[in-house]
Nucleic acid binder design. Structure first.
Length: 647
DNA sequence: TCTCCTACTTTTACCGGACG
DNA sequence: CGTCCGGTAAAAGTAGGAGA
């Protein structure tokens, strides 16, 4: 709205704006639509000024002026001109038009008011909501909590602990989170969901380490109820509260654990990390502030986190409670001011903020794509191992692309030199000595990949929090050109390590060399597994010996090969599509390690969370994914061998 | 002989990227 | 969320030389 009074956008009628009751052939949206403003001033009324005839296949929605008498809306005066006529396609799904933001706002108001919001689906309501709050409200158009059309004004967004911390990172992000809460960027990936649910489980478990407390029922939506329940519990003299809820000047917080001590309350925030991080401080501080203003005296703030030194089965020391009172106190004076500034910001159109380090620190912003275009292919930031500061230096000199760099600037960095050559030639570049370092495939060679899980709360002997445990492997074995495949996935409920060790010991028999990508993982796995093997079986030595025979394709690629399509990354997922284009993961649901790990964790630790068909299906998907990974290694090796042959 | 500065070397810290 | 690694940058240490 601020940028330009008119914006182009597309709405897919069926999907985004209305269901088919509203738009369908022969009965366009007119009935459900509010007249829209354009042309001369005037009041609501029948008729309206037809500005343009509808093109074939479209019905016309008449636009009318509704009047904006608002000093804030000086820009809106520009709307009073021809052009913003809406055409609704006779066919659902085809509404393409140009609409003023103001008209759009009203358009959406109407839909939101008359139908439930789901009928509108995801569109960018952010502008609409913000428009109504920031333009209609302050200038008094539509009084007594009503907007210009007489519809109730949207409530001011309420802050919360998490919103506060988002706002601390970036106001613009907070603005979008408040006004565009249904944005696709905010839909958590399966992997993120796994992280969240792990956090919740750890949080619940933490409460059992501070037993005897009273849990405030917490239902996400009914915040007022939770606050009331908390007040009542306090009145009754409860000494330990879980999820105690408070709200002060529209900021809601639920405290993980609140403990009454002799000289005040101890506020405990639970995190499923292994230590205190900087970003935890403001998080705890806003809680302490709200609790304090609510009238409780907070004498101590603790962060309760997992203890790296803890070993299963002794989980007595699973959590550590670190005193962060001082650090919180240092931050506390900033809280009230920050809350105020966040609220003020939310009463205005989206703030202007340049992208910067705050886009990534402490958390990656989900909206980076809205603020910043992706850097073009061949951008200097793709240089391997270049940090943001050094990339900045090049950019400030006007050298945006790798091809702009001079030989002198990248001398001594073989990878950068190769990257520049690849960018210049727009093709694959291999080092001169690549063929000398390509490993042969004589004898019996294996291609190995493990899948691991890393439960936050250890469940197997001698494991610490987040310890990686191999639970699955895939092994392709090649001998004289013939390929065989071995695979294993541990069964639910038991320590996977002995099973995996045994199965792997058998599968590896006779292998003279093993290939992997980023082999250290695999090496360490083999050593760990060796330690789990029973002494008499001889398996331990065999696995240990194999660990010494693991060769890594990653450095081979990184130090000898580059193609512009790597885009600065040497991960298997970046390299493979270029070097082995006919092998991909498109047909697999489980197609990356993160998801694999999350699925593996559920399958092995909480199989009952899924019906049996889902368990069976996931097993198959995990096996298919892991097998694809090792097949990729085979094909990658083939690629290397072909290069050798070609010379 | 002591201090201070500079230039070089070693150590440490941090970051990015790889994996799960 | 965690791990580890490698590379680079920053910090700390060291050596040598000049000046007082």
């Amino acid at each position: 709205m601020r940028d330009s009074p008119t914006s182009n956008f597309q709405v897919r009628a069926e999907k985004d704006l209305m269901d088919d009751q509203l738009v369908r052939p022969g009965k366009h949206a007119l009935g459900g639509l509010v007249p829209m403003c354009l042309g001369k001033g005037g009041a609501f009324g029948p008729g309206g000024e037809v500005l343009e005839a509808a093109p074939p296949g479209f019905d016309l929605i008449v636009a009318r002026f509704v009047g904006v008498f608002c000093p804030f809306a000086g820009g809106m005066v520009e709307l009073h001109r021809l052009g913003a006529v809406d055409f609704v396609a006779n066919e659902a799904r085809g509404l393409v038009h140009q609409m003023d933001p103001f008209a759009k706002a009203i358009f959406e108001i109407r839909f939101e008011t008359f139908r439930d919001r789901d009928a509108v689906g995801y569109e960018n309501h952010a502008e609409t909501l913000a428009f109504r709050r920031s333009v209609c409200a302050p200038c008094g158009v539509g009084s007594r909590g009503r907007d210009i059309l007489g519809f109730p004004m949207p409530r001011a967004p309420t802050l919360s602990k998490s919103r506060f911390t988002y706002g601390l990172q970036c106001h613009k992000q907070l603005w979008w989170r408040c006004f565009d809460g249904r944005a696709p960027e905010l839909i958590p990936s399966p992997t993120q969901r796994a992280v969240f649910s792990r956090g919740h489980r750890v949080g619940d478990l933490a409460q059992s380490y501070v037993p005897g407390g009273f849990r405030i029922p917490h239902d996400g939506r009914q915040k007022k109820k939770a606050v009331a329940a908390t007040a009542q519990a306090l009145a009754e003299g409860k000494k330990i509260l879980y999820e105690a809820s408070f709200e002060v000047s529209d900021v809601f917080v639920a405290v993980d654990i609140l403990i009454k001590g002799d000289d005040g309350w101890t506020l405990v925030e639970v995190k499923s990390t292994t230590g205190v991080k900087d970003q935890h401080i403001p998080d705890a501080a806003v809680q302490a502030w709200v609790v304090g203003v609510s009238g409780l005296s907070v004498s101590r703030v603790e962060l309760m986190h997992l203890n790296r030194a803890c070993r299963y089965p002794n989980l007595a020391d699973l959590f550590l409670r670190t005193d962060i009172t001082e650090r919180v106190e240092d931050f506390l004076p900033r809280v009230a001011g920050e809350i105020e500034s966040q609220k003020e910001m939310l009463d205005l159109p989206i703030p202007v903020l340049e992208p910067g380090a705050h886009c990534r620190i402490p958390y990656e912003c989900p909206f980076t794509g809205r603020c910043q275009e992706d850097p073009p292919a061949g951008h200097v930031s793709e240089l391997h191992g270049i940090g943001a500061p050094r990339a900045r230096k090049f950019i400030d000199r006007g050298q945006e692309l790798i091809v702009d760099l001079t030989a002198g600037q990248i001398s001594g960095k073989a990878i950068w030199v190769r990257q520049r050559e690849a960018a210049t030639t727009e093709g694959l570049v291999c080092s001169a000595d690549l063929t000398k370092v390509v490993p042969g495939d004589a004898g019996r060679v294996g291609y190995l990949d493990f899948e691991m899980l890393a439960p936050a709360v250890p469940v197997w002997m001698d494991c610490r929090p987040f310890q990686n445990v191999p639970a699955q492997f895939s092994l392709h074995v090649r001998e004289n050109g013939a390929l065989e495949h071995h695979e294993f996935l541990a069964s639910s409920g038991v320590d996977p390590r002995p099973e995996v060790a045994k199965a792997l010991g058998q599968a590896l028999r006779g292998c003279e060399v093993l290939f992997a990508y980023d082999a250290d993982f695999e090496r360490r796995c083999l050593r760990d597994l060796a330690a789990c093997a029973t002494a008499e079986s001889g398996l331990g030595e065999a696995l240990l010996a194999m660990a010494e025979k693991v060769e890594d394709f990653l450095p081979l690629v990184r130090n000898h090969v580059y193609h512009p399509d790597f885009r600065g990354s040497f991960s298997l997922k970046s390299v493979l599509p270029v070097l082995v284009p006919d092998l991909d993961y498109a047909d697999l649901r489980v197609a990356d390690g993160h998801l694999a790990s999350a699925e593996l964790e559920t399958l092995l630790l909480r199989p009952d969370a899924w019906p049996t068909w889902r368990q069976r299906k996931t097993r198959q998907e995990l096996l298919a994914y892991c097998a694809r990974d090792t097949l990729a290694l085979v094909r990658l090796h083939d690629w290397f061998l072909d290069r050798k042959q070609a010379v």
